[in-house]
């Protein structure tokens, strides 16, 4: 899948993160309080559980101009609602499958598991994801005015 628009020097990607309250959001918080450096490209939206993330949230984010979307929840087996992250994994894999079909490069979407103690992992995930989106350039497939 081709994506148009090479990245300009000054351009900074906009990344929307949906993070679960109990693990990943706390992990991001830990990164902050521990003063671990991570890119400022990410805007985090707190959800109670990754299972709350409706695939429509992701599409909507792209439609409103996000260049990448990251969904993060507790590791398998650790979800505070027992199975929310397993459901999220299936639902969002389905959505990822569809993304390709829209022409949006599916690698603009990522799911990852980050626990409350993994401030370091959080920073790494965001850094790597930001690098990837920078290479892909701005997302324009779903954010045009005609759709």
């Amino acid at each position: 899948m081709e994506d148009e628009g090479g990245a300009k020097e000054s351009w900074e990607p906009k990344i929307i993160g949906f993070f679960c309250n109990w693990c990943s959001y706390a992990g991001a918080d830990l990164a902050g309080t521990s003063r671990i450096q991570y890119p400022t490209t990410i805007r985090i939206i707190k959800v109670m559980c990754s299972g709350r993330v409706n695939p429509q949230f992701v599409l909507k984010a792209f439609q409103e101009g996000a260049d990448g979307v990251l969904v993060s929840g507790c590791h398998p087996g650790d979800c505070h609602y027992i199975e929310g992250n397993y459901h999220a994994r299936r639902k969002l894999t389905l959505m990822e499958d569809l993304l390709e079909f829209t022409g949006v490069d599916p690698s603009r979407f990522q799911m990852s598991w980050v626990s409350a103690s993994e401030g370091q992992k959080f920073a790494e995930v965001v850094t790597e994801f930001t690098e990837r989106i920078k290479k892909l350039g701005p997302q324009t497939k779903l954010s045009g005015g005609e759709g």
């Binding site: 599409l59 909507k60 439609q63 389905l94 959505m95 569809l98 079909f101 829209t102 779903l142 759709g147």
Partner: peptide, 14 residues
Amino acid sequence: DILFYQLTRNIHVA
């Protein structure tokens, strides 16, 4: 929201 509508149907129905 034409595209959003169609894609939502796609996600829900596929």
